[in-house]
Amino acid sequence: MNKLIINNKDNVLDINEDSLITIFNTDIKSLDLNIFDNVKVFINDFRIINKSSTNININIKDNSNLIYNHSFINENKYNLNVNTNYKGNNSEITFNIHGINEKGISNINFDGILNNNINNTLLENIKLINIKEGTGVVIPNILVSNNEVVANHKATIGFISKEELNYLMSKGISKKEAEYLILTGFLINVFEDKKLITNIKELINWRG
């Protein structure tokens, strides 16, 4: 599997082999992904965002699979615009997004076009937690023009779960530590890469 780390603001990637792409706290303005036939692509994207707009454009051809896992802490303003275009059949795009809005607002705009090609799947699973003065908006636009596709959009925006907080406190953990554990768990829970998880924990440790 091809392993890539993205450090640039503007990126155009032509992907024709199985790839694992990592974005670790890099301010990305644009990411154009051209995914060719028969490839599996995993993207792990974690960022602490102050003021940022990111445009992600995905063109995917036949029999390919993209899993895009993204988590972020928004400290000020974050605009995320995602466009998905299916250029062939039998492909699947999955977006798992976990975001914490600490201050300001995050706007997540999702444009998915499932046109006349068949057996394509678009799955979006977006969860945002608002803390302090943060807020979030999720705008999904999924255009489906045939019956032989699967489109699934799930978005929740809320606060730290009181049930989880009470549960951890009932083990003798202070409220502050319990909140920290829940938020850290929420951010890392979209990833499986142990090294990335360790790096995220180290990066956000100071926030307490």
């Binding site: 083990k171 953990i173 530590e177 554990l181 929420f186 951010l187």
Partner: peptide
């Protein structure tokens, strides 16, 4: 409690 391991929670508690 997603993403919070038993070991982490117990160590902090």
């Amino acid at each position: 409690v997603p993403g919070v391991t038993n070991a982490e929670m117990l160590r902090i508690a």
